[in-house]
């Protein structure tokens, strides 16, 4: 297995996540697409670490930071989704148009 295989896998995962984040109507679906993109980036970090700097571990450390920030992001995002659902009674992105006045 070469580095290109792992990069191709991560690119495919990133594109699937991007497509999901752009096209899902449900906010929870959009958050899932964002999670897929985070995971694609983490695969890239681990693959570069393994193939280009096999004696170093900084790639794993940065991927750990990405995981922590993604966890914080998803927690706040889901709390917002629940708050919106309670006040607007919808989870669809196009129905949330309060700022239009």
């Amino acid at each position: 297995m070469t580095l290109a295989h792992y990069l191709a896998l991560s690119a495919a995962l990133f594109l699937i996540g991007l497509f999901g984040a752009l096209t899902r109507r449900n906010i929870i679906g959009i958050l899932m697409g964002i999670e897929l993109m985070f995971n694609a980036a983490n695969i890239n970090l681990a693959a570069f670490n393994r193939f280009l700097h096999p004696e170093g571990i900084v790639g794993s450390a940065v991927a750990l930071f990405v995981i922590a920030v993604a966890a914080a992001e998803i927690v706040v995002g889901l709390a917002l989704v629940l708050a919106i659902y309670r006040s607007q009674n919808t989870v669809y992105a196009e129905d949330i148009s309060l700022l239009k006045g």
Partner: peptide
């Protein structure tokens, strides 16, 4: 992706 293809596992 295709530029990076030459790297192989060493250790």
């Amino acid at each position: 992706i295709f530029e990076a293809g030459t790297a192989v596992l060493t250790a």
